[in-house]
Simulated assay, not measured.
Amino acid sequence: MANHKSSLKRIRQDKVKALHNHYYAKTMRNAVRKLRAMTDKDEATKLYPCVQKMLDKLAKRNIIHKNKAANLKSSLTKYINKLG
């Protein structure tokens, strides 16, 4: 266990940040899941910019890796284009 006052504070801050990051990562995963479950191309096209913005923001804040965001956006675009 940490003995320094600053390291105890750092542990407390890390817990809060981890909880915050977990919430936003989970929200992103649910949005991607929702988009992949869609069968209507028009609805998926309307939802895609919102999901794309979310992915870019999370990548910018280092909650997810930038390449993961790029891969997800690419695969979602392919999925939307494939819809009839």
Rank of each mutant, 00 (worst) to 15 (best):
A2G: 08
V32W: 01
L76C: 05
Y79E: 10
Y48A: 07
S75Y: 05
A70P: 04
R61H: 11
I64F: 04
K78W: 05
I64A: 03
D42L: 10
A31W: 00
A69P: 00
D40L: 03
L83S: 08
K41H: 05
Q13A: 11
A37P: 00
I11T: 12
K57S: 13
K41G: 01
I63L: 12
A70W: 10
T27A: 13
C50E: 14
N67C: 04
I63C: 05
K46I: 03
K34M: 08
D56K: 15
K46A: 12
N30V: 07
N67L: 11
N62E: 15
M28T: 04
K82C: 06
R10K: 15
D14Q: 15
H20W: 09
D56W: 08
K26A: 10
K60C: 03
V16N: 04
K60F: 07
A18Y: 05
R12S: 11
A44I: 02
S74A: 10
K73C: 04
K17V: 04
A2W: 11
A37N: 07
R10S: 14
I11E: 15
Q52R: 08
A44V: 02
V16E: 10
K53R: 14
K46F: 04
M28L: 15
R36M: 07
K78P: 01
S75L: 13
R33F: 04
K73Y: 06
A70T: 09
M28I: 01
T77G: 14
K17C: 02
K5I: 11
R36Q: 07
L83A: 09
